[in-house]
Protein backbone atom coordinates (compact mmCIF):
# COMPACT_ATOMS: atom_id res chain seq x y z
CA UNK A 1 0.00 0.00 0.00
CA UNK A 2 2.68 2.50 1.04
CA UNK A 3 4.75 1.39 -1.90
CA UNK A 4 1.92 2.27 -4.28
CA UNK A 5 1.46 5.70 -2.72
CA UNK A 6 5.18 6.39 -2.99
CA UNK A 7 5.14 5.31 -6.62
CA UNK A 8 2.14 7.58 -7.33
CA UNK A 9 4.19 10.46 -5.95
CA UNK A 10 6.84 9.92 -8.60
CA UNK A 11 6.16 11.99 -11.74
CA UNK A 12 7.91 9.49 -14.00
CA UNK A 13 5.87 6.57 -12.73
CA UNK A 14 2.63 8.57 -12.90
CA UNK A 15 3.46 9.61 -16.46
CA UNK A 16 3.83 5.98 -17.51
CA UNK A 17 0.75 4.77 -15.61
CA UNK A 18 -1.46 7.54 -16.99
CA UNK A 19 -0.37 6.69 -20.54
CA UNK A 20 -2.01 3.26 -20.16
CA UNK A 21 -5.05 4.55 -18.23
CA UNK A 22 -5.85 7.48 -20.49
CA UNK A 23 -7.30 5.67 -23.56
CA UNK A 24 -9.57 3.60 -21.31
CA UNK A 25 -10.92 6.73 -19.59
CA UNK A 26 -11.53 8.46 -22.92
CA UNK A 27 -13.28 5.37 -24.29
CA UNK A 28 -15.49 4.97 -21.23
CA UNK A 29 -16.32 8.70 -21.24
CA UNK A 30 -17.29 8.69 -24.93
CA UNK A 31 -19.40 5.57 -24.55
CA UNK A 32 -21.19 6.68 -21.38
CA UNK A 33 -21.78 10.27 -22.53
CA UNK A 34 -23.15 9.14 -25.89
CA UNK A 35 -25.45 6.53 -24.32
CA UNK A 36 -26.57 8.87 -21.55
CA UNK A 37 -27.24 11.81 -23.86
CA UNK A 38 -29.27 9.77 -26.34
CA UNK A 39 -31.16 7.97 -23.60
CA UNK A 40 -31.81 11.08 -21.55
CA UNK A 41 -32.73 13.41 -24.38
CA UNK A 42 -34.66 11.00 -26.60
CA UNK A 43 -35.88 7.92 -24.76
CA UNK A 44 -36.40 8.95 -21.14
CA UNK A 45 -39.97 10.07 -20.39
CA UNK A 46 -40.82 13.77 -19.99
CA UNK A 47 -41.85 15.05 -16.57
CA UNK A 48 -45.54 15.31 -15.67
CA UNK A 49 -45.23 18.99 -14.68
CA UNK A 50 -42.24 20.36 -16.55
CA UNK A 51 -42.49 18.43 -19.80
CA UNK A 52 -39.30 18.37 -21.83
CA UNK A 53 -37.46 21.13 -19.98
CA UNK A 54 -36.91 18.50 -17.28
CA UNK A 55 -34.26 16.97 -19.57
CA UNK A 56 -31.82 19.74 -18.60
CA UNK A 57 -31.32 17.61 -15.48
CA UNK A 58 -29.11 15.28 -17.55
CA UNK A 59 -26.50 18.03 -17.87
CA UNK A 60 -27.22 20.12 -14.78
CA UNK A 61 -26.94 17.45 -12.08
CA UNK A 62 -23.75 15.74 -13.38
CA UNK A 63 -22.07 19.15 -13.78
CA UNK A 64 -23.08 20.21 -10.26
CA UNK A 65 -21.88 16.89 -8.76
CA UNK A 66 -18.55 17.26 -10.49
CA UNK A 67 -18.16 20.96 -9.62
CA UNK A 68 -18.39 20.10 -5.92
CA UNK A 69 -16.35 16.90 -5.89
CA UNK A 70 -13.53 18.44 -7.95
CA UNK A 71 -13.17 21.12 -5.29
CA UNK A 72 -12.89 18.43 -2.60
CA UNK A 73 -10.29 16.54 -4.66
CA UNK A 74 -8.39 19.79 -5.16
CA UNK A 75 -8.42 20.54 -1.42
CA UNK A 76 -7.31 16.97 -0.67
CA UNK A 77 -4.43 17.31 -3.12
CA UNK A 78 -3.59 20.66 -1.50
CA UNK A 79 -3.42 19.02 1.94
CA UNK A 80 -1.14 16.24 0.65
CA UNK A 81 1.06 18.84 -1.00
CA UNK A 82 1.29 21.05 2.09
CA UNK A 83 1.92 18.33 4.66
CA UNK A 84 3.82 15.64 2.79
CA UNK A 85 5.35 17.92 0.13
CA UNK A 86 4.38 15.60 -2.70
CA UNK A 87 4.69 17.67 -5.85
CA UNK A 88 2.58 15.24 -7.89
CA UNK A 89 -0.41 16.25 -5.75
CA UNK A 90 0.15 19.89 -6.60
CA UNK A 91 0.45 19.15 -10.32
CA UNK A 92 -2.87 17.29 -10.18
CA UNK A 93 -4.50 20.17 -8.26
CA UNK A 94 -3.25 22.66 -10.85
CA UNK A 95 -4.63 20.48 -13.63
CA UNK A 96 -8.03 20.10 -11.96
CA UNK A 97 -8.85 23.71 -11.05
CA UNK A 98 -9.93 25.05 -14.48
CA UNK A 99 -12.00 21.90 -15.09
CA UNK A 100 -13.85 22.40 -11.83
CA UNK A 101 -14.44 26.06 -12.64
CA UNK A 102 -15.82 25.09 -16.05
CA UNK A 103 -18.16 22.53 -14.47
CA UNK A 104 -19.40 25.10 -11.95
CA UNK A 105 -20.12 27.47 -14.81
CA UNK A 106 -21.99 24.73 -16.72
CA UNK A 107 -24.07 23.96 -13.61
CA UNK A 108 -24.93 27.64 -13.07
CA UNK A 109 -25.69 28.26 -16.74
CA UNK A 110 -27.83 25.15 -17.25
CA UNK A 111 -29.62 25.98 -14.00
CA UNK A 112 -30.40 29.49 -15.25
CA UNK A 113 -31.72 28.12 -18.55
CA UNK A 114 -33.83 25.64 -16.62
CA UNK A 115 -35.07 28.29 -14.21
CA UNK A 116 -36.71 30.44 -16.89
CA UNK A 117 -39.42 27.97 -17.98
CA UNK A 118 -39.99 26.34 -14.57
CA UNK A 119 -39.56 29.05 -11.93
CA UNK A 120 -40.17 32.09 -14.08
CA UNK A 121 -36.72 33.61 -13.44
CA UNK A 122 -33.18 32.83 -14.50
CA UNK A 123 -31.53 34.02 -11.32
CA UNK A 124 -32.54 34.54 -7.73
CA UNK A 125 -30.30 35.16 -4.72
CA UNK A 126 -31.36 32.09 -2.81
CA UNK A 127 -28.92 30.13 -0.65
CA UNK A 128 -28.25 27.34 -3.16
CA UNK A 129 -27.64 29.57 -6.16
CA UNK A 130 -25.56 32.06 -4.20
CA UNK A 131 -23.35 29.43 -2.56
CA UNK A 132 -22.77 27.88 -5.99
CA UNK A 133 -21.75 31.29 -7.36
CA UNK A 134 -19.31 31.61 -4.44
CA UNK A 135 -17.86 28.24 -5.48
CA UNK A 136 -17.18 29.65 -8.94
CA UNK A 137 -15.42 32.66 -7.38
CA UNK A 138 -13.39 30.33 -5.14
CA UNK A 139 -12.25 28.37 -8.18
CA UNK A 140 -11.27 31.58 -9.95
CA UNK A 141 -9.48 32.70 -6.77
CA UNK A 142 -7.52 29.44 -6.54
CA UNK A 143 -6.49 29.70 -10.20
CA UNK A 144 -5.55 33.38 -9.90
CA UNK A 145 -3.64 32.89 -6.62
CA UNK A 146 -1.54 30.17 -8.18
CA UNK A 147 -0.46 32.52 -10.94
CA UNK A 148 0.02 35.57 -8.72
CA UNK A 149 3.41 34.64 -7.29
CA UNK A 150 6.79 34.90 -8.97
CA UNK A 151 7.89 31.65 -7.32
CA UNK A 152 5.81 28.64 -8.31
CA UNK A 153 6.12 27.06 -4.87
CA UNK A 154 4.61 30.10 -3.09
CA UNK A 155 1.71 30.19 -5.54
CA UNK A 156 1.11 26.47 -5.07
CA UNK A 157 1.05 26.83 -1.30
CA UNK A 158 -1.31 29.82 -1.35
CA UNK A 159 -3.65 28.02 -3.76
CA UNK A 160 -3.63 24.91 -1.54
CA UNK A 161 -4.56 26.93 1.54
CA UNK A 162 -7.41 28.72 -0.27
CA UNK A 163 -8.70 25.40 -1.63
CA UNK A 164 -8.69 23.89 1.86
CA UNK A 165 -10.45 26.85 3.47
CA UNK A 166 -12.92 27.03 0.56
CA UNK A 167 -13.92 23.41 1.03
CA UNK A 168 -16.12 24.64 3.93
CA UNK A 169 -18.43 25.97 1.20
CA UNK A 170 -19.17 22.43 -0.04
CA UNK A 171 -21.37 21.28 2.89
CA UNK A 172 -23.04 24.71 2.77
CA UNK A 173 -23.97 24.15 -0.89
CA UNK A 174 -25.16 20.64 -0.16
CA UNK A 175 -27.34 21.46 2.84
CA UNK A 176 -28.43 24.98 1.77
CA UNK A 177 -31.76 23.59 0.53
CA UNK A 178 -32.42 21.92 3.89
CA UNK A 179 -31.18 24.66 6.23
CA UNK A 180 -32.97 27.61 4.63
CA UNK A 181 -36.06 28.34 2.57
CA UNK A 182 -34.84 28.36 -1.04
CA UNK A 183 -36.41 28.50 -4.48
CA UNK A 184 -34.26 25.53 -5.46
CA UNK A 185 -35.89 22.21 -4.57
CA UNK A 186 -34.22 19.71 -2.18
CA UNK A 187 -31.98 16.94 -3.56
CA UNK A 188 -33.61 14.15 -5.58
CA UNK A 189 -30.74 11.81 -4.71
CA UNK A 190 -29.65 10.92 -1.21
CA UNK A 191 -27.51 8.09 0.06
CA UNK A 192 -30.18 6.93 2.46
CA UNK A 193 -33.39 6.76 0.44
CA UNK A 194 -34.65 5.83 -3.01
CA UNK A 195 -34.26 8.42 -5.80
CA UNK A 196 -37.30 10.68 -6.12
CA UNK A 197 -37.91 9.56 -9.69
CA UNK A 198 -38.58 6.27 -11.50
CA UNK A 199 -35.79 4.06 -12.90
CA UNK A 200 -36.54 5.15 -16.48
CA UNK A 201 -35.47 8.67 -15.44
CA UNK A 202 -32.59 8.10 -13.03
CA UNK A 203 -30.75 5.35 -14.91
CA UNK A 204 -29.78 7.63 -17.84
CA UNK A 205 -28.88 10.29 -15.25
CA UNK A 206 -26.59 7.83 -13.47
CA UNK A 207 -24.94 7.02 -16.80
CA UNK A 208 -24.43 10.73 -17.48
CA UNK A 209 -22.88 11.24 -14.02
CA UNK A 210 -20.49 8.32 -14.62
CA UNK A 211 -19.71 9.70 -18.07
CA UNK A 212 -18.93 13.16 -16.68
CA UNK A 213 -16.58 11.63 -14.08
CA UNK A 214 -14.75 9.55 -16.73
CA UNK A 215 -14.45 12.65 -18.92
CA UNK A 216 -13.04 14.59 -15.98
CA UNK A 217 -10.54 11.84 -15.09
CA UNK A 218 -9.39 11.57 -18.70
CA UNK A 219 -8.92 15.35 -19.01
CA UNK A 220 -7.15 15.55 -15.64
CA UNK A 221 -4.73 12.79 -16.63
CA UNK A 222 -4.03 14.60 -19.89
CA UNK A 223 -3.48 17.98 -18.23
CA UNK A 224 -1.40 16.48 -15.41
CA UNK A 225 0.84 14.78 -17.99
CA UNK A 226 1.57 18.04 -19.75
CA UNK A 227 2.16 19.69 -16.36
CA UNK A 228 4.68 16.92 -15.52
CA UNK A 229 6.53 17.49 -18.79
CA UNK A 230 6.65 21.23 -18.17
CA UNK A 231 7.92 21.00 -14.59
CA UNK A 232 10.25 18.05 -15.07
CA UNK A 233 11.74 19.30 -18.33
CA UNK A 234 15.20 19.45 -16.76
CA UNK A 235 15.23 15.77 -15.71
CA UNK A 236 17.01 12.98 -17.48
CA UNK A 237 13.94 10.88 -18.27
CA UNK A 238 11.96 13.73 -19.87
CA UNK A 239 14.91 14.68 -22.03
CA UNK A 240 15.32 11.07 -23.19
CA UNK A 241 11.59 11.01 -23.92
CA UNK A 242 11.88 14.14 -26.04
CA UNK A 243 14.87 12.73 -27.93
CA UNK A 244 13.05 9.47 -28.63
CA UNK A 245 9.99 11.21 -29.97
CA UNK A 246 12.04 13.29 -32.41
Amino acid sequence: MWGLIHKLGSPKWFYQLSATLQPWCWGAAALLLLTGTLWGLVFAPADYQQGNSFRIIYVHVPAAFLAQSVFVFMAGAGLIHLVWKIKMADMAAAAMAPLGAAMTFVALFSGAVWGVPTWGTWWIWDARLTSMLILLFLYIGVIALRGAFARRDSGARAASVLAMVGVINIPIIKYSVDWWYTLHQPASFTLTSRPAMPVSMWLPLLIMVAGFYCFFIALTLMRTRSEILRREAHTQWVQTLVKESR
Binding site: A46, Y48, W119, L183, A196, M197, P198
Partner: peptide
Protein backbone atom coordinates in the same frame (compact mmCIF):
# COMPACT_ATOMS: atom_id res chain seq x y z
CA UNK B 1 -45.05 42.22 -8.59
CA UNK B 2 -43.70 38.82 -9.52
CA UNK B 3 -44.78 35.24 -9.00
CA UNK B 4 -42.16 32.46 -9.10
CA UNK B 5 -43.11 28.79 -9.12
CA UNK B 6 -41.30 26.27 -6.96
CA UNK B 7 -41.28 22.61 -7.74
CA UNK B 8 -40.36 19.65 -5.58
CA UNK B 9 -37.61 17.09 -6.06
CA UNK B 10 -39.99 14.46 -7.47
CA UNK B 11 -40.01 13.75 -11.17
CA UNK B 12 -42.21 11.24 -12.98
CA UNK B 13 -43.61 10.54 -16.45
CA UNK B 14 -47.06 12.07 -17.17
CA UNK B 15 -48.71 8.66 -17.58
CA UNK B 16 -47.63 7.60 -14.11
CA UNK B 17 -48.87 10.88 -12.62
CA UNK B 18 -52.21 10.47 -14.43
Amino acid sequence: DKVLARHDENYMPPEVAQ
